[in-house]
Nucleic acid binder design. Structure first.
Length: 574
DNA sequence: GCCGTTTTCGGCCCGACTGTTTTCAGTCG
């Protein structure tokens, strides 16, 4: 049984919670939390790396002790220290830390004074009204805990980025109506374009902070004001989304935007670098002693500590600071670089719109080409095409291409990869296409070895071009199927195949970490929308965000090429 | 628990808001 990084991370995170409740050294706890972030951000399972004999202490943040603990978890599936700690602190106490307003100190007190071991005990204590009688607690904190418990069971954990955009736009337009607001913009993970957003962070530039905060909490969608001070406030909206507002003066714009954009790990590094230069960074600026030396723009702050400007999408402490120091930051791809969409469906299978409508919509987006990739016949739920159906579509596209002047329709198909790794349409029809995309829509639960072999065998077919949605994950709904992505990428590279970044909102597959992994391997990727209607062609921006988070440049993505260069690339070596 | 261009020991980012206090601890980002 292979242990995945997320499982090791969960063990360290739980250990950190319990140690925190015990009142352990905060820096030791930080080391464990830092390790969880490192593990989650790694493109490959450490179990794999250990098998290859890698030295984990080479990773910054992992010392001899943590490396040993990781090894123990990988070989035995558990960590003795966690079990020992759990003997002193009830392990389910870590759940209580997820409640808003409950940190380690209060959880410890609930445990020691009221013998609360878990969520059930807590709910009982709330009902009995015993919490407010604890020294240091009081009525308001008890009330906040009660609301926190309720909210924890109701709220979605994170929101998809796309779902938060209309809310953010509406809130920003509301804020901008205030006469004293010069600038209002989103920071946080929203600005870093993470695929999911935990809460919305909004920065406002104004000299009239008090009236701005007052105005903010009156926004029509606010259902609860969690905190409200002179310069910041937190509210909860009808949708369950939490919004943090911060107001600063113009001189602090850059420093505040930097601070509020994060990530936390990125900011920590910046602040440490500043300390090394006898400087101090906070949300008001960068200071030498008490003297303000910069802070109007983010660029100014970076410059003071010897770094070039780092794009928000890169600020995850995944090597961007070292790259900035060496002047080796990537020039990130942008939506304007995209010249076509290579994955979309029509009403011939499970799409909503016609071939003509899709082509016209793509032309309106300024694209040079669009590939029509309706499903093949194994996907019966989508009424997939058999050879005959595909032949009819090919003929239709040929006719349409004669007529169309401003766009080229590429003949294609989303071909199912069968369990044995064969494709479910014969090469006799595939050779008539400009390209194929191939994907897994069945037997998700094969072992990692079998699933990986299945895909690589499919790639052996010379008509295999693009592996669509390579891990099959659906955000919040389905875990990725077990595949050795490193092996798949290597095999794709050797065979001239390409991996997709699928921009369907629930997919976003590959993810950012895998994009970066592909880039390092020099494996080309494609960004596609998998549009099932003309309107979904607009999802392209989300794929581009993901690509930017994965450090991709124009040259790394094949649908930035002209149609002739693209066609050449899709020829493989056949 | 990690780390080292002041350090192998002694540091480890920094500030706002709240509630329960009478000057500050706890939580959060």
């Amino acid at each position: 049984m292979r242990i995945h990084n997320a499982e090791i991370a969960a063990i360290f995170n739980k250990l950190a919670d319990l140690l925190e409740i015990q009142g352990e050294n905060p820096f030791r706890i930080r080391a464990y939390r830092n390790a969880t972030r490192i593990l989650v951000d790694m493109p490959e399972d450490v179990a794999n790396l250990l098998e290859k004999g890698a030295d984990l202490t080479k990773i910054t943040g992992i010392g001899a002790d943590l490396a040993n603990k990781i090894k123990t978890i990988v070989t035995t599936g558990e960590l003795p220290l966690l079990n020992e700690t759990a003997a002193h602190v009830p392990p389910l106490l870590s759940q209580l830390m997820q409640i808003e307003g409950l940190g380690p100190k209060r959880v410890q007190r609930l445990y020691k004074e009221l013998y609360i071991h878990n969520m059930i005990d807590l709910k009982r204590a709330i009902k009995q009204g015993t919490i407010q009688k604890l020294p240091g607690f009081g009525v308001k904190i008890a009330q906040r805990i009660q609301e926190g418990v309720k909210y924890l069971s109701e709220r979605p954990r994170r929101f998809k980025l796309a779902d938060t955009i209309p809310v953010a736009d509406y809130l920003l337009s509301y804020l901008k109506k205030h006469k004293d607001i010069k600038i209002a913009e989103c920071a946080g993970s929203f600005r870093r374009r993470k695929e999911t957003v935990g809460d919305l962070d909004i920065l406002v530039i104004s000299n009239e902070n008090v009236s701005v905060v007052d105005y903010f909490v009156k926004f029509e969608e606010v259902v609860a004001v969690i905190s409200k001070g002179m310069t910041r406030s937190t509210v909860r909206l009808r949708s369950g989304l939490q919004v943090d507002l911060r107001v600063v003066a113009p001189a602090s714009y850059g420093a505040a935007l930097l601070y509020f954009t994060g990530s936390k790990a990125h900011n920590l590094r910046l602040r440490k670098i500043a300390i090394g230069k006898k400087l101090k960074i906070n949300e008001y600026g960068i200071f030498k002693g008490k003297k303000y030396i910069a802070g109007k723009t983010e660029k100014d702050v970076y410059k003071q500590i010897g770094l070039s400007y780092i794009e928000p999408e890169l600020r995850e402490e995944r090597g961007e600071i070292e790259a900035a120091q060496r002047g080796k930051l990537p020039e990130l791809i942008s939506l304007n670089d995209i010249r076509g969409d290579l994955h979309c469906h029509t009403h011939a299978t499970d799409g909503k719109d016609s071939l003509e409508a899709m082509a016209k919509a793509a032309a309106e987006l300024g694209y040079d080409y669009i590939a029509i990739t309706d499903h093949s016949h194994s996907l019966t739920v989508a009424h997939g095409l058999d050879s005959q159906g595909l032949q009819q579509q090919i003929n239709k596209i040929d006719q349409l291409n004669q007529k169309l002047k401003n766009i080229v329709i590429l003949k294609s198909c989303e071909v199912d990869i069968l369990e044995d790794g064969s494709l479910d349409l014969p090469n006799s029809i595939l050779h008539q296409l400009d390209m194929t995309i191939c994907s897994i829509h069945s037997r998700f639960n094969l072992s990692q070895k079998k699933q990986t072999e299945r895909i690589i065998r499919a790639m052996d077919n010379p008509y295999f071009n693009i592996l669509a949605h390579p891990t099959g994950r659906l955000l919040d709904r389905r875990e990725p199927y077990a595949v050795d992505i490193a092996k798949i990428m290597q095999a794709a590279k050797e065979r001239g195949c390409i991996l997709e970044i699928n921009a369907q909102l629930a997919r976003m597959d590959l993810d950012d970490v895998h994009c970066k992994m592909a880039k390092e391997l020099r494996l080309p990727l494609v960004i596609s929308t998998d549009a099932h209607s003309t309107s979904q062609l607009r999802y392209m921006c989300f794929g581009v965000y993901q690509a930017r988070r994965g450090w991709l440049e124009k040259k790394d993505v094949i649908n930035t090429h002209s149609v002739s260069k693209l066609k050449k690339l899709l020829q493989r070596n056949r």
